[in-house]
Amino acid sequence: MTDTQRNHVDTSGTLDEALERIHLSGPERDGWLSNHAPMAVEALVRRGQAPAAHRWLDNYRPRLEDMPGSVAPVTGRNWQEALGDIDRVADWTAFFERETADRPWRTVLAEWWPRLLPGIAGGATHGVIRVGHSVRTLLAGEETEPRVRELAHALGYWAARHQPLPALERLAPAPDAAAALERVPLIADQDGEMLARLGRLTGFPDWPGQTPEEPEAARTAIEELVRAATHRYATHGHAAPIMLVHSATAPNAVLRTLPALPGALWVPSLHAAWAASATVTAAYGPREAVPVTAPPGAQDPQEVFERAAAHGDDHTIKFTDTALDVGDAAALVAAGRAMELNTPAW
């Protein structure tokens, strides 16, 4: 394991304490903005910034809202009628709390992952991103009650915001992920929230052109996509500095979840990861790139993340976390660009 890839296992109880505080709130605020606290706090703890986690949450907590009230219980028989209904988010959360209490969380995840993948773009991809952070924690350490409950909250939010894409044209193949992102047709009208923009999508390049036959090939392709999207942010993130981070963080959430899934689900996961990244690119990408000059000398990954933590913006923290997963110099430049483009939180 390199220094760039090194992660910290939380033995202090900080993450569990923070999650218990977060679970008093709902998954959204101000009508549609996502609650980023569980994802940002997990990244802070994971990257060695646990002492700052509660202070960050103290500052973020006034933005949050209570969990909405229940409408009617979601069950194994009626779940399809509740899929994509944000008014049922409390019911979905309670459903997954029951499911993960009664069965191993990996079993629940494997059952629901293929059901939720077609709606990966819902909630501006925050459902899958929250799941990815949750699964990373569960795979890395003790399966505590707050961490399993966080997976239930993440799955519940994804189910409530589930939003399939419209039928899309399959465009000419691209040789690699970077070229595929470059060739994504931008929607003509980039106004409105992401939900409104989804209906304006027309088609995506055919990538990867040949569907991988082996799970490991699918993993490699997703890694390539995450790297390409992270690098691209440095030159293209200026168009929508907050939204375009999801072109990298959404497929990275899928990548983080793969080890907990059966191999048969890895190829469908690749296709969903590409759809998520391409959707964000089409909906928010700029017409022109802006050249970026890399700082002189090599950057230390841990120092880069410390700067992101001090910056405090939730999307910047999560994007820098992904940049450290990619781990190369270009990714660290992109993380620095996110700090420049996004407004510090406090």
Score class of each variant (00 low, 15 high):
Pro73Cys: 02
Arg183Gly: 05
Arg61Met: 12
Gly297Trp: 10
Ile120Phe: 12
Tyr233Thr: 02
Arg197Met: 07
Val71Asp: 06
Ala174Pro: 09
Arg149Leu: 06
Gly327Asn: 02
Ala218Gln: 09
Leu24Phe: 11
Trp113Val: 02
His126Trp: 01
Thr75Lys: 15
His315Cys: 02
Leu19Ala: 08
Arg63Phe: 11
Glu111Asn: 04
Pro291Met: 09
Glu340Met: 09
Arg256Cys: 14
Ala338Gln: 00
Ala278Trp: 04
Glu340Thr: 05
Ala152Glu: 05
Val226Met: 06
Glu97Met: 06
Ala217Gln: 12
Glu213Tyr: 07
Thr202Asn: 08
Ala275Gly: 07
His231Ala: 09
Trp274Glu: 00
Gly132Asp: 04
Gln299Cys: 13
Asp102Phe: 06
Gly26Val: 02
Pro212Arg: 07
Ala94Pro: 13
Arg130Trp: 09
Asp102Val: 07
Leu332Thr: 02
His231Val: 02
Leu261Ala: 01
Pro205Ile: 00
Glu340Asp: 15
Val45Tyr: 11
Trp158Val: 07
Arg170Ile: 03
Glu143Gly: 10
Ser134Cys: 06
Val74Ile: 14
Ala308Ser: 13
Gly263Ile: 09
Ile22Trp: 13
Leu151Val: 11
Leu255Gln: 08
Ser25Thr: 15
Leu57Tyr: 08
Pro295Thr: 04
His133Ser: 11
Gln299Ile: 09
Leu225Thr: 05
Thr93Arg: 15
Phe204Cys: 03
Pro175Ser: 13
Ile242Thr: 11
Arg136Thr: 10
Glu216Trp: 15
Thr220Ile: 07
Gly336Trp: 00
Glu213His: 12
Trp113Ile: 03
Val71Met: 08
Phe95Met: 03
Thr107Ala: 15
Arg103Val: 04
Glu142Asp: 15
Pro51Arg: 14
Thr4Arg: 10
Pro62Ser: 13
His36Asn: 07
Pro205Gly: 06
Leu195Ala: 12
Arg98Asp: 01
Ala272His: 15
Arg287Lys: 13
Leu255Arg: 01
His311Asn: 02
Arg55Asn: 10
Asn252Cys: 13
Thr11Glu: 05
Thr107Ile: 14
Glu143Pro: 09
Val89Phe: 02
Glu306Gln: 14
Leu225Ile: 09
Pro51Asn: 08
Ala159Asn: 08
Leu19Met: 13
Gln299Asn: 09
Thr137Ser: 13
Gly199Cys: 03
Glu145Ile: 14
His126Asp: 01
Trp346Gln: 12
Met1Phe: 11
Gly312Cys: 08
Val292Cys: 14
Gln49Cys: 14
Ala345Tyr: 09
Leu225Trp: 12
Arg161Lys: 15
Gln299Met: 12
Asn7Tyr: 02
Pro268Asn: 03
Gly123Met: 01
Asp321Ala: 09
Pro27Met: 07
Glu150His: 12
Leu64Glu: 03
Arg63Ile: 10
Pro51Glu: 04
Thr144Asp: 07
Trp32Val: 13
Gly48Met: 07
Glu303Phe: 12
Arg307Phe: 08
Gln190Tyr: 10
Gln49Pro: 08
Val226Trp: 01
Leu155Asp: 11
Ile129Gln: 04
Glu223Trp: 01
Pro286Glu: 04
Ala275Cys: 08
Ala179Gln: 14
Ala52Tyr: 05
Gly84His: 10
Ala179His: 15
